[in-house]
Amino acid sequence: MADVGGAQLEMPGMPRRLFPATPSKLAAFGDCPRRYRHAYLDRPTPAKGPAWAHNSVGSAVHAALRSWWELPLPGRTPAAARQLLYGVWSTAGFRDTEQSERWRARAAGWLTDYVTGLDPADEPVGTERQVAATTERLALSGRVDRIDQRGDELVVVDYKTGRSVCTDDEARGSPALAAYVLGVRRTLRRPCSRVELHHLPSGTVAAFEHTDRSLANHVRRAEDVAADIAAATAALDGGADRDEAFPAAPGRQCGWCDFRPSCAPGRAATASRDTWSFLPEDPPAPT
């Protein structure tokens, strides 16, 4: 049985092979098949564009929170969280050093407020935990920011640092969060239905309680995307033109696509964005 770019070709009489999928992999194809091809099939992988400041912010906050929970209990203080953030901070994507330093101070404030509201002794079941599950057609896997114990059930917690306050509808509609629920159930063998988006800039929490029906809807959509990926990959293996098998989907998103340098349709669709343009307006300089 051949494996072509993650899509297994079935032989007569053999059971169906599962498509290995992550939320980011499925989202890449759903957003733009060309971007999926560049990220997962083309070798060598095409050169990417520059780093983005908002990703630097998010990565630093996530890393600091993971490390904070790894500290011995007496060390889990707001001051420690700030120091952990400072230690992993990257200037990549910022306009200049001054902008980076202002945003580091702002992110440190978010982090201080957030961990002040946590019980350091309320040990998570997992942080940055890899989970996996299978469906009729998929082998799903993903990494959960945090898994909490609430009574008899586990809760999926996802940290957010974007400019927009998260909503309950976003929690309900997130394919990634639904995949994490399935993964937690299968990997940890514990009940899990609730997902939460913890938006550190606003200090708010958006949540949703999944049902078997809501999860089934997410699985159906994920399997449909996986089927489209398999069909496009099989066409490519059969000699189809690479750009026709995986067409570009030009739009505003091309202004910040990582593979913009390698995609003529994307460059023609819209102007490139400044690498700090997804940050809200600069905060006042700290006094």
Rank of each mutant, 00 (worst) to 15 (best):
V131W: 10
S202L: 03
T211I: 04
A222N: 11
G151N: 08
T127C: 15
G126N: 04
A206P: 09
L177D: 00
T127K: 11
Q149L: 13
T127D: 03
F208I: 07
V219P: 01
E153M: 03
D158P: 02
D145N: 08
L140C: 12
T167R: 05
V195K: 00
A121F: 15
V184W: 05
D122T: 14
A179G: 05
A133K: 10
T112N: 14
L182T: 01
E128V: 12
L177N: 05
E136F: 13
A226S: 13
V156M: 00
T134G: 13
S202I: 03
L215D: 01
S164V: 05
G162M: 01
D224F: 06
T204M: 01
R143M: 06
D122I: 04
A178R: 12
T112F: 14
T127L: 06
A139M: 14
P120F: 13
R220E: 14
T167I: 06
T116Y: 00
R163C: 09
D145A: 08
V144H: 02
Q130Y: 08
S214A: 00
L197I: 04
G117P: 14
L215V: 08
R220Q: 14
A132I: 00
T211W: 03
I147R: 02
A222I: 01
A108T: 07
D122E: 13
R172K: 14
E209D: 15
P191I: 06
Y180I: 06
D145P: 01
V184T: 06
V205N: 00
R194D: 04
D145L: 01
R221S: 14
R194G: 11
G162F: 03
L140M: 13
A222E: 12
Y180K: 07
G151L: 04
V165R: 12
R146P: 11
T127W: 03
R194K: 09
P201T: 10
T187L: 10
D152N: 01
R143S: 08
T135C: 13
N217L: 15
Y114Q: 09
L177C: 07
R186V: 02
D168N: 15
R137L: 15
D224Q: 15
T187D: 05
R146D: 04
F208C: 04
S164N: 13
R194C: 08
A222H: 11
A171M: 00
R137T: 10
V205H: 01
D122K: 14
G151K: 05
R189I: 10
L118D: 01
A178P: 03
R129Y: 15
T127E: 08
R190Y: 11
P201G: 12
R220M: 10
D113K: 13
A108D: 09
D113F: 05
I147G: 09
C166E: 02
L215M: 10
E153A: 11
A206H: 14
D122Y: 11
A108G: 15
D158E: 11
A216Q: 12
L215K: 07
T134A: 15
W110S: 12
N217R: 09
V115K: 11
D145F: 04
D224S: 06
T112G: 10
L188N: 07
L200S: 09
L138P: 07
V219I: 14
R163T: 00
E223G: 07
S202T: 10
H210D: 03
D169H: 02
A226Y: 04
